[in-house]
Amino acid sequence: MDESTESFRAPAETTVFQECPPAVVAARESLASTGVHLMPAATVRAHFGSREEEWARFATHWEDLSQDRYASARGTCRLRRYGQFSLTPATGELTQLPDTPFVQPDSSNPLYVDVDRHFDPLTTAFVADPLLRSVVALLGHVVGALDSAACWIAKVHPFRVVARAGGEGQPTPEGRHRDGVTLVSSLLVGRNNAIGGRSSVFAPDGPELLSATLDEPASLLLSDDRRTLHGVSPIRPLDPSQPARRDVLVTTLTPA
């Protein structure tokens, strides 16, 4: 695809910080000490200086996702797309990489270790959305608390999990797991008619480090994937006669 090698540079104030903003400082400190951090929606919105209409526009990309046939084979109704970028935090340059299958390494997701999964690529409109670039740029500055790298690989997964009327939807059918990366993040984009979907992060030996239901769009959960496990409880319809959905953007970073 033509957009697979397109580069973007967001405005300097959203990518290259002369002085580290409080939101980034707090996230870096939490990740370095406990391995997990929850950034409230109000903090995320204030950091980006974004308006309600910008988030509403961003959410429309979730209406253009494709069926995840691998999840369907296991009884989970999930829609998604997938793409990769290279990110240079020092300059804010974000370059989309060619489309490749998604493969998770050993000691990560037990359902799909070393399985080539082919997903539809990110749309051109989604890749060009300023909020996507702002989110990835923020993660590039936060991840510096965990490791130093001149360039990072950002893997971007917009997800929609659906619970049919009277049923449930499984955001993480694999249970507690790692993604085999350095930083894993989950940004809530929207929920509709849904209860449940509680996100939890655990120490490798079992204790819960943080548990929260992301219920306000722009809530951002971050964790050090090398020393934690994470999972999300099922969602169910609040009105059992209607389906429920949970839309998130999962973005992971690893050194290039």
Rank of each mutant, 00 (worst) to 15 (best):
E3F: 07
S4P: 02
S4A: 15
F8W: 14
R9P: 01
R9Y: 00
R9S: 07
P11Y: 01
P11K: 03
T14E: 10
T14I: 09
T14F: 13
E19G: 04
P22W: 03
A26E: 14
S30F: 06
S33V: 12
T34F: 12
T34W: 07
G35E: 08
V36Y: 01
P40W: 09
A42W: 00
T43N: 00
V44E: 07
A46P: 02
H47N: 07
G49Q: 13
W55H: 12
R57F: 06
R57E: 09
A59C: 00
A59F: 00
T60K: 05
T60A: 13
H61V: 11
S66Q: 11
R69I: 00
S72V: 06
G75P: 10
C77L: 15
L79V: 04
L79I: 06
F85I: 00
T88D: 11
A90H: 04
A90S: 15
L94N: 01
L94C: 05
L94P: 02
L94V: 13
P98K: 14
P101M: 09
N109T: 08
L111Y: 02
V113E: 12
D114W: 02
D116A: 04
F119W: 08
T123K: 06
P130T: 05
L132T: 05
R133K: 04
V135A: 08
V135Y: 04
V143T: 15
G144C: 10
A145D: 11
D147T: 14
S148Q: 14
W152H: 03
A154S: 14
V156N: 11
A165C: 04
A165Q: 08
G167K: 10
G167H: 12
G167C: 10
R176Y: 03
R178Y: 02
G180R: 02
T182G: 10
L188Q: 01
G190L: 00
N193E: 15
A194Y: 11
A194T: 03
I195W: 01
R198V: 14
F202Q: 08
A203T: 02
P207H: 13
E208M: 15
L209P: 03
A212E: 12
T213Y: 01
T213C: 03
D215F: 00
D215N: 14
A218R: 06
S219R: 02
S219K: 00
L222E: 11
D224M: 08
D224I: 10
S233Q: 10
S233H: 08
S233G: 06
P234S: 15
P237G: 12
L238H: 08
D239Y: 10
P240I: 05
S241Q: 14
A244K: 08
V248D: 02
